[in-house]
Amino acid sequence: MPEKKHLFDDPRNVRSVLWALIAVCGLLFAADFIFHRHVVHPWEALWGFYAVFGFIACTVLILVAKEMRKFLMRKEDYYDGDD
């Protein structure tokens, strides 16, 4: 008996999620131009500061971590028999 189709088995649903994410990103970025955010530090006052920071932070984090694998990664049984 074939298993019933689940929500994300249909690539269209995955695409809708991505479009929704892009739409929310757009709205949140636009919100910076509509609402005034009160700030403590001048950096915060830059338009789209949190949005740009979030995007760059996450990208940098992943790219750096990926590079770290080159010198941190060992075989799964690396410590076996040592300790």
Binding site: L18, G48, F55, A57, C58, R74
Partner: peptide, 28 residues
């Protein structure tokens, strides 16, 4: 803003294939 744009970064890296795959390994 911080969170949703972080999610966007993850989605972009995952779709473009840059995201590091999960691997059987020990990280020292």
């Amino acid at each position: 803003q911080l969170l949703v744009f972080s999610a966007a970064a993850f989605a972009w890296l995952k779709i473009s294939g840059i995201y590091p795959p999960e691997l059987h390994a020990t990280n020292i």
